[in-house]
Design a protein around this nucleic acid. Structure first.
Lengths: 216, 216, 216, 216
DNA sequence: TATGAATGAGGATTCATTCAT
DNA sequence: AATGAATGAATCCTCATTCAT
C-alpha cells in the first residue's frame, strides 16, 4: 500500500491553505515545476511559464517577486511543508502500526520512499538540480534530512536493537544504507533502468533485510 | 592501490596529444569545467569563463565553435576518451592480475570506481547536471555505460560463476548493485556525508561481498 | 497627373490594416527603411534603428523575429502588396481611360512609373542594394516584374498592334525599353543628374514615342 | 573612410603601392573584389578574403591599412586606372580613326562601353553598391564622370555639330542618353535579361543613332 | 616577411521585470 | 486584478585589428 500522498496532492492542500494564492497562481506554480524540472531553472523563461500556465507574463509577478522567488515557492513547500508532512505521516503511521518485525519495518520504509520518489519525480529532479549548483540549498537539504530522519528513525532503531532483531550497525551506517538505496532507485528511474516498482521494492527491501536482520 | 588516473591527469594527456589545442584553450577548458560544474551550464557566461581562464572573451571561441561545443569539449573526452580508457585500464588490470578470489575482485572494482568518483567529482557533477535536463545526453550516457560495462564485466562474472564463487545473481542485478553503490557514494560525497574514502571503500566492498559471495 | 500613391502612403494603409502592428512597430519600420536605405542593411545596427525610432532596442524584436525579418517586413509589402496594387491601379486606370492614342499610353506609363520612382526612392534603393548582394532576392524580383508586366502590358500592346499604331517591336524589346527607361531615370535621380520630373517625363516619353510610334 | 581622401589622392597612393605589390597582395585584391562584389563590403570578412586569397589573415594588413583601405584599393584603380585608361583609349582611338560618320562614332562608343561593362561587371557592381550607401563616394563618382566625359566628348560633339550631322541636342541631354544607355545595359546584365552583347550593341547604338542622327 | 593566435569592442538577440491601461 | 507592450541589461558571438614569433 502506498502510504504516500503524491506531492501534488499534498501541495494542493498546502496551496488551498494559502488564501492569497489564486487559481491563476496555482497554475503558475504547476507550470513552473513542470518546466523547471524538465529544462532546468535557467533554461526556462518566465514567459514560457506564463504560456504553460495560460496567463499573461505579467501575472507571474503578481504573487512572486521574481523568478528566483518562484523557484523558492516551487521548492520551499516541497520540504518545508510537504516533505515534512510526508515524513511525519510516515513516522506516525509506522509507529502506529507498532511494527513487530524488522522485515516489515524495512519493507514499509522502502515501499513508502519508493512510491514517494515515483510520485514526485519532477520535484525531486528539480531539487537535485538545485542541489548540484547551489551550495546553500545543498546545506539546507542536508540539515533538513538529518533533522527529519533522526526524529523518527532513532526510536524505532532503538526498539529493534533492544529486541536484538537488528544487526549491530551504527545509526550513520543505517542512514547511509537507506540514503544509498533511495538515491539508487532515483538514479535507476532517471536512467530508465528501473524494473516495475513492486519488484524494485521487493529487491531493495530484501537486500536491506539480508544486510540488517540478525536472522541472516 | 588506485589504478585510476584522475580525469584531469588523463585529460592533460589527451590535451597534449591534441596539438591544435593551445595553452590558452586548455585553460579555457579547465575554467569551463570548474564553472559549469559549480554553477551549471546555463548560469555560466562565456565572459566569466574567459575571466577565470585569464583570456579575452573572444579567445573562448577560437577552438570552440560556441558555448555548447565548449560543453561538449569538456564532457566528450570524459567518457568518449578518458573514461573509456579508464575502464579499459581497469579491465586489463583486473584480468592481468588474474583475480583468484571474488572478494579481491569486488574490492578492486569498488576501490577503482570510488577513486574515480573522488578524482573526477566536478566533471561527474556536470555530467549529472546535463543528464537531468538533456534527454539525448541521458541516452548517450546510458548506452555508453552499458557498452563499457558489458565488455569487461561479463567475462569475469562468467569465470566466478564457473568457479562457483559468485551467488546466483543475474547480470542485470549485478549492474544495478554496482550502479547503486557508485551513485550512493557520489551522493554521499555530494552531501558531504562521506567518511574517508578508504573506509567507504571498505564498507561498500564488504557490503557487496556479503551480498554476492557464496561464502556468506 | 500622378496616379501613383507613394509607397509610404500605400504602406501606411497596409499597416493600419494590420491591427497587430503598434505605433511603435510602425515607427520601427519607418526607421528601418530610412537607415537600411541610406546605409545599407549590414551597416545598420538594430540599436541604431531603435534609436531612430525612439524606442528601446528590445522593442525592435517585439513584432520582428530578427533583423532579417525586419528587412523582409520593410521590403515584402513593397512589391508583394503595394507595388502589385500600384501596377493593378495603373492597369485599371489605363484600360478605363480607353487610351485611343499610343502617345497617350506611353506618356501615362512613363509619368506613372517616374512618380513611383520619385516617391519610393528609399525603398527602391534598398531593394537594389539587396538585389546586388542576394541572388535569391534578385530572382524573386525578376519573376515578380515579369508576371506583373505581362499581365497588363500584353493586351494593350495587342490593341495598338492591331490598330497599326505601334511599330513592329517584340514584347521583349518593349520590356527592355521600358525597363531601361526606368533604370535610367532611377540612375539619374541617384546621381543627382535628373531635371525636374515633368521635364524628365516629357523627354523620356517623347523618346519612347519617337522610337515606338508608327507616325515617326 | 573612402570619402576622406580624394580619389586623386587615393589614385596616387594606389599607384605607388601597386608597383611593389607582391603576388600575395594581388591575390588579396582579387579575392577582395570577388567577395565584396558578390556579398557586399560589410558582409565580407577580412579572414574570408585571406582564405580566398590563400594567405594568412594578418597578411591582408601588410599593404592595406584596414578593411576600408582595401576597399579603396580595389575601387580606386577601377576608375583612376582602368576606366580612365579606357576613356583615354577610346578618345585616342576615336580621334585617330578620324571618324567621318556620326553613326560610326556612336557605334564605337556603345561597343566600347558595353564591353567595358561586361568585362568589369564585378567591379561595377561593387562600385554601385558603394554609391548606394555612401553619399560622398557618390558625389566623387559624379564629378569624375563629368570631368572625364567632358574632356573627350565635347570636341567630338562640336565637330559633328559643325558638320551638321548631329541633331540639336544639348550636351547635358547627350550625357543623359549615353548614361542611360549604359545603366540600362548594366541593369539588363544584372537581371539576366541581356541578349548576346553584339545584339545589345547593335540595338542600343541603332536606338541612339535614330535619336541623334540628322539623317533620321 | 608572413603568420595566426589573441584581443576586445560592437552587434544581434533574449528575457526578467515594470507599468500604464 | 490581469494584461502584455515596453524596457534595457546581459549574453552569445563575430570580426577587424594587433603583435609576438
Amino acid at each position: 500500500m502506498m502510504s504516500e500522498q503524491s506531492l501534488d496532492a499534498l501541495y494542493e492542500q498546502t496551496l488551498s491553505q494559502q488564501k492569497d494564492l489564486s487559481e491563476v497562481q496555482k497554475s503558475v506554480l504547476k507550470a513552473a515545476l513542470k518546466l523547471f524540472s524538465s529544462q532546468g531553472f535557467e533554461a526556462t523563461s518566465t514567459s514560457q511559464i506564463a504560456q504553460e500556465a495560460g496567463v499573461a507574463s505579467g501575472s507571474v509577478y503578481k504573487q512572486f517577486k521574481n523568478k528566483r522567488a518562484l523557484l523558492a515557492a516551487v521548492l520551499a513547500p516541497l520540504f518545508k511543508g510537504t516533505l515534512q508532512t510526508a515524513v511525519e505521516e510516515l513516522a506516525d503511521q509506522t509507529l502506529s502500526r507498532q511494527f513487530v518485525e524488522l522485515d516489515d519495518f524495512i519493507y514499509a520504509i522502502v515501499e513508502d520512499r519508493f512510491y514517494f520518489i515515483q510520485n514526485n519525480f519532477p520535484a525531486i529532479k528539480l531539487m537535485l538540480n538545485q542541489i548540484l549548483t547551489n551550495e546553500d540549498f545543498r546545506k539546507e537539504v542536508i540539515s533538513f534530512f538529518e533533522r527529519q530522519l533522526e526524529g523518527f528513525l532513532l526510536p524505532v532503531i532503538e526498539k529493534f536493537h533492544v529486541e536484538n532483531k537488528l544487526k549491530d550497525v551504527s545509526y550513520a551506517e543505517l542512514i547511509e544504507l537507506i540514503f544509498g538505496t533511495m538515491i539508487g532507485y532515483f538514479g535507476k528511474v532517471l536512467f530508465g533502468l528501473a524494473s516495475p516498482i513492486k519488484i524494485e521494492i521487493e529487491q531493495s527491501s530484501q537486500q536491506l533485510i539480508r544486510y540488517l536482520s540478525v536472522k541472516n
